[in-house]
């Protein structure tokens, strides 16, 4: 765990309980039981574990969608409250990409109005001058054609939807991107394209990422460090290569045995493939 240098995101002793009653949530089911992790600037932390291990719960706490029962979540030393109660610059600093690409976008809104909502909510990030041109530039950076702007989620493929979701998240110039199983619902080929896009954007926008996945192969491709979660606690944490090649915890070993081979090349900083992709 990196100490010393100033961390971007710092999660300390996080406890989240589902169900149960009362302020103390007695009798509930503990989804997260004392998780601590940190993400340095421009670092990607992969959070892996099987379903039900509490990874998504951690992500939702960081994004402010869930209130933890105990523990602190800080960003550059400032506490992150619930979404909507954060000061605007903190609200912008942490953005999230969701698992299901199609339902991440309001089915009644066009891509243009999705992005317009972002700019209306955070006028600081709104482009000066021609917004249509700025929108097209933003879409092009995600490898999307300009004509996508007038379409709705139902008319787009899963990969395109996920590119739009990433565009929405990056439109407010965040410092930390939380990706909750962001590529899990996609076809393998599209998965690779989105991973390459994320890797490219991470470099260009100096993003830190909290990358949550159950897929060790995917995490291997994109993460600098890996934390392995099981039943609400982190059982192992370390540099990606070390954890995935020489795991110390038996659970990590079991996960690795269950996964496919990890010999996929780490994505280069190549450009995103054409607009028709996705």
């Amino acid at each position: 765990m990196s100490t010393g240098e100033r961390d971007l995101l710092d999660v300390r002793e996080l406890y989240v309980t589902y169900g149960g009653r009362g302020g103390g949530r007695r009798g509930g089911h503990a989804a997260v039981a004392g998780v601590s992790l940190s993400v340095a600037p421009e670092e990607t932390l992969g959070l892996v574990g099987e379903s039900g291990s509490g990874k998504t719960t951690v992500a939702r706490c960081v994004a402010g969608l869930l209130r933890p029962r105990a523990g602190t979540v800080t960003f550059e030393g400032r506490p992150l409250g619930r979404a909507g109660h954060r000061p605007p610059e903190l609200q912008r600093a942490v953005q999230m990409v969701f698992q299901d690409p199609r339902s991440s976008l309001n089915p009644r809104m066009t891509v243009a109005s999705v992005i317009a909502e972002v700019w209306r909510t955070h006028p600081v990030t709104a482009p000066e001058g021609d917004r249509t041109e700025a929108l097209h530039r933003l879409l092009a950076a995600m490898g999307l054609d300009p004509d996508v702007a007038s379409r709705r989620a139902g008319d787009l493929s899963g990969g395109q939807c996920q590119r739009v979701s990433i565009a929405r998240a990056l439109a407010v110039r965040p410092r930390l991107l939380v990706c909750d199983e962001a590529v899990s619902a996609l076809d393998v080929s599209v998965q690779a394209q989105i991973l390459r896009l994320l890797a490219e954007l991470r470099g260009r926008h100096r993003l830190a990422m909290l990358f949550i996945s159950h897929d060790l192969g995917v995490v291997h491709q994109i993460a600098d460090r890996v934390a392995v979660m099981r039943r609400g606690v982190i059982v192992e944490e370390g540099r990606t290569v070390e954890v995935l090649t020489a795991p110390r915890h038996p659970y990590t070993r079991a996960l690795l045995d269950a996964a496919l081979d990890l010999d996929d090349p780490v994505p280069g900083d190549g450009t995103a493939d054409g607009g028709a992709a996705g």
Partner: peptide, 26 residues
């Protein structure tokens, strides 16, 4: 519970706007 509502909340869209734009039309 829909992701598009979560996405709007993470962006900091005010609750009333989320309700009017992302919930009520449906």
């Amino acid at each position: 519970e829909r992701p598009w509502v979560d996405a709007a909340r993470v962006l900091g869209v005010p609750g009333r706007t989320v309700l009017a734009r992302h919930v009520l039309p449906f």
